[in-house]
Deep mutational scan, measured.
Amino acid sequence: MASQGTKRSYEQMETDGERQNATEIRASVGKMIDGIGRFYIQMCTELKLSDYEGRLIQNSLTIERMVLSAFDERRNKYLEEHPSAGKDPKKTGGPIYKRVDRKWMRELVLYDKEEIRRIWRQANNGDDATAGLTHMMIWHSNLNDTTYQRTRALVRTGMDPRMCSLMQGSTLPRRSGAAGAAVKGVGTMVMELIRMIKRGINDRNFWRGENGRKTRSAYERMCNILKGKFQTAAQRAMMDQVRESRNPGNAEIEDLIFLARSALILRGSVAHKSCLPACVYGPAVASGYDFEKEGYSLVGIDPFKLLQNSQVYSLIRPNENPAHKSQLVWMACNSAAFEDLRVLSFIRGTKVSPRGKLSTRGVQIASNENMDAMESSTLELRSRYWAIRTRSGGNTNQQRASAGQISVQPAFSVQRNLPFDKPTIMAAFTGNTEGRTSDMRAEIIRMMEGAKPEEMSFQGRGVFELSDERAANPIVPSFDMSNEGSYFFGDNAEEYDN
């Protein structure tokens, strides 16, 4: 993207840094990872977990959730003011799984939030270390993106479920800051804005008074975040219109849905970061690795190297396929839920299948599930090659597409044709070009129609051997075009429920 120079890199967003050079960025990201790792080690000690239990991804998720809940100030305040039966607002906890007599047992633990905050700050040299908290939120978000298709949420806001490739980060909490905003897809931002506008339509006082002023500035800020994701002048001009509207209503909703559809071809720039579970960072720190000293990046080879040398386990339900569970977590670790499966298959070195073909449910185990038949197995999170994460949407291309997802959002900077089903997408653009945004709409449609099938995206960008740390010898991959490109292809993934 041309304006790259004016933006802070995501590592800076990730670490609240002012302008830093590459070495400083690597050190501050490393410091953040160190903090998460030290916190995780301490929690495993508190909970008396064995090494194996500490490497269980379900335990990692519970521990991450506990610290996120302990620092969720708004919710904590709300819980104190609106006490609900049987919930102690000062405590947080969740299921911890232990191996007892050759069987997995679930144990519900409860801790004072104050105590968890103390352990977290102690692991982070006394700081609140917001960057580390956001990092864990993005890992949870990436896992949700890989596990669930947001059909219901899309339909509720009037969008087409086939636009799911635009929904990265749709389950990120509001408090995820600049680093969170960077990884949100165009569809996620559109959905947040539509929800806001709908509230304004239904509630006369939404934009009024002292609160209304705050609401208005939040609305304009979200519009600017979305505008910054678009790469064409016409899309940005249309966002200006939406932002400046005196009284946002149905016309703005129409414009936003139009823009979301246009992003299936004229893709937005959305950041991709490899955020790993805390149970990967903990053992690495415990083994003596100093992330701050060595430096770390979320968008280069580092996460690949770390996963190459990590042992992570997962509980497996009786009829689940461990290899499929591994694929789910591998995609989440690489922030690749909406990437082209052919690119992923090449990088991973084994075939990556669409969601609907995987015999696996989510990673988390519900409290009512029976533990008797639970097994555990090693997650295979290694890769054959590594590639640089991208934040450009890439230019655009036609490809055989599917009944489910009709476009992709690249996660890796790797040369390819970008699949999208042009006739299906263009069919949504018939007729409606009147109104105050008509010239911009016409211009956007013209650009979409001009998108050429034979153009290559990320020209000359390749993948790298894991021994090639400096990215000196790019390998331009070859793809098996007979395979499906979309992950949520004609899909039956479970729906995400809060």
Rank of each mutant, 00 (worst) to 15 (best):
S326P: 04
S170H: 09
Q168V: 08
R99V: 10
D34H: 10
R162F: 12
G393S: 15
G450H: 11
A237N: 07
D51P: 10
S262D: 06
E369G: 10
M159S: 05
V312D: 02
D497H: 06
G404V: 10
R342N: 09
R156L: 01
G404Q: 05
P477H: 03
I36Y: 00
R400H: 12
Y148H: 09
R8A: 00
N247M: 03
L259N: 08
E254Q: 14
L108E: 05
S314C: 14
Q168I: 09
P419T: 04
R65I: 01
G435Y: 06
N319W: 02
S413K: 11
K357F: 07
D468P: 09
F429C: 14
G450V: 06
E115S: 08
K184P: 11
Y487A: 03
D290N: 14
S359L: 11
G187V: 11
P173A: 14
S50D: 05
G394C: 01
G35L: 06
N224V: 14
R446H: 05
L154R: 05
E320V: 08
S383C: 12
V100E: 09
G282P: 01
A153S: 11
R38V: 04
T130E: 05
R102D: 01
R261E: 10
H135P: 11
A263C: 14
P474E: 00
A411I: 00
E320I: 03
S262K: 01
E220P: 03
A471T: 09
M447H: 14
M374H: 05
F346H: 06
E469N: 06
T424I: 07
P303M: 13
I63D: 03
L56C: 13
I116P: 03
G185S: 05
V312I: 15
D468W: 00
T130V: 15
Q235T: 14
G132C: 07
K229C: 08
Q308T: 03
S467Y: 04
R246P: 08
T360C: 15
L379P: 09
E80M: 08
A2E: 04
R75W: 09
T134P: 06
P354E: 01
F479H: 13
G228D: 03
D240Q: 07
E73D: 12
T433I: 15
N321E: 02
D101M: 04
A234I: 13
L110R: 08
A336Y: 00
A373K: 07
C275L: 03
T396D: 01
A271E: 09
A234M: 05
D372W: 08
S345R: 08
D72P: 02
L68E: 07
T232L: 10
D468C: 15
S482Y: 02
L108K: 12
C223P: 10
E455Y: 05
T437P: 05
F464E: 06
L256I: 04
D491M: 11
S335P: 03
T360N: 07
H140W: 08
V285R: 05
A70P: 01
S245G: 15
D302N: 15
R355C: 10
D203C: 09
A337R: 13
A27L: 12
A493H: 06
I475W: 02
F346L: 15
G158Y: 07
P322N: 08
W139K: 08
F412Y: 13
I197Q: 04
R246M: 06
Y78E: 11
A263Q: 03
S467G: 12
S359A: 09
A179P: 03
R236L: 02
Y40R: 14
M222Q: 03
L276F: 03
T378V: 06
A182P: 03
N370G: 02
M238D: 06
V155H: 03
Y10L: 14
S310M: 04
A27G: 03
P161L: 04
S217V: 14
Q364F: 15
N334Q: 08
I63T: 11
R400D: 06
T437Q: 06
M167N: 10
L172R: 04
G300N: 09
L166P: 02
F291D: 11
R317F: 07
P354V: 11
I347F: 13
E454Q: 14
L298H: 06
R317D: 11
R221N: 09
A22M: 00
Y496G: 13
S262C: 08
I57T: 08
M13F: 04
R221F: 10
S413G: 07
T92H: 10
S28A: 14
T45R: 05
F338S: 07
Q399S: 06
F291A: 11
S176D: 02
T437C: 11
E369K: 08
E80S: 10
E294H: 13
I41K: 00
R267D: 02
I425M: 06
A70E: 04
F230D: 03
L315M: 15
C279H: 03
H324A: 08
T157R: 04
S69Q: 04
E80D: 12
G35W: 08
V414R: 01
S457Y: 00
F258A: 08
N498W: 01
A178E: 04
E252P: 02
L143G: 11
R382G: 11
K184N: 04
K351P: 13
Q58V: 06
F346I: 09
Y148M: 09
G460N: 03
T147M: 09
S367Q: 10
S170G: 09
A428H: 14
N395E: 06
T232P: 09
M331G: 04
Q405V: 00
G462T: 06
E114V: 00
N397P: 01
G94E: 13
H135D: 05
A387W: 05
S176K: 03
V186Q: 15
R470I: 00
S392E: 05
Q399T: 10
A286P: 04
Y487I: 10
D290W: 05
K305T: 06
V463A: 12
R246V: 04
L143R: 05
R195M: 05
S176F: 07
K103E: 08
K103L: 11
P248E: 08
T147Y: 06
N395P: 02
G393D: 01
I36V: 14
D372E: 15
M1I: 07
K98L: 13
S60V: 10
I347C: 11
V190M: 14
S367C: 04
S274N: 13
N124F: 13
T147D: 05
N492T: 07
I301P: 10
M448V: 04
K198N: 11
I197N: 07
E375Y: 05
I257E: 06
Q415E: 00
D101H: 05
R221S: 04
M105I: 11
E18R: 02
S287Y: 08
D101E: 13
T188L: 06
P83T: 08
E339L: 04
E320L: 04
R384N: 14
R391F: 06
R65D: 06
V186R: 03
Q308I: 15
A27I: 04
A278W: 07
G17F: 00
Q405C: 13
S376N: 14
Q398A: 09
E292Q: 14
Q308N: 15
S84A: 15
M191F: 07
N417V: 10
L193V: 08
S326A: 05
D340C: 10
L341F: 07
S482M: 05
M43Q: 06
I445D: 02
M239H: 05
L358K: 04
T146P: 01
K273E: 05
T360D: 04
C44S: 07
S326R: 14
E244P: 06
P474I: 03
R208K: 15
F71R: 13
V414K: 04
N202Q: 12
G490A: 01
I25D: 00
K325N: 09
R38C: 09
P419W: 04
P83V: 11
H324K: 01
L166F: 01
W207T: 02
V408M: 15
I41F: 13
V476D: 00
R195H: 05
G356N: 10
W330L: 05
A131W: 04
R195G: 01
A451C: 02
I475A: 12
G209Y: 14
A263H: 06
Q241Y: 02
K103G: 09
F304R: 02
Q20A: 00
N224G: 02
M189R: 01
Q235N: 03
G268F: 06
V100A: 15
A493V: 12
M105E: 08
D439I: 15
L110H: 08
E220L: 01
N432S: 12
I41V: 11
A472V: 10
F412E: 00
E292D: 08
I265T: 13
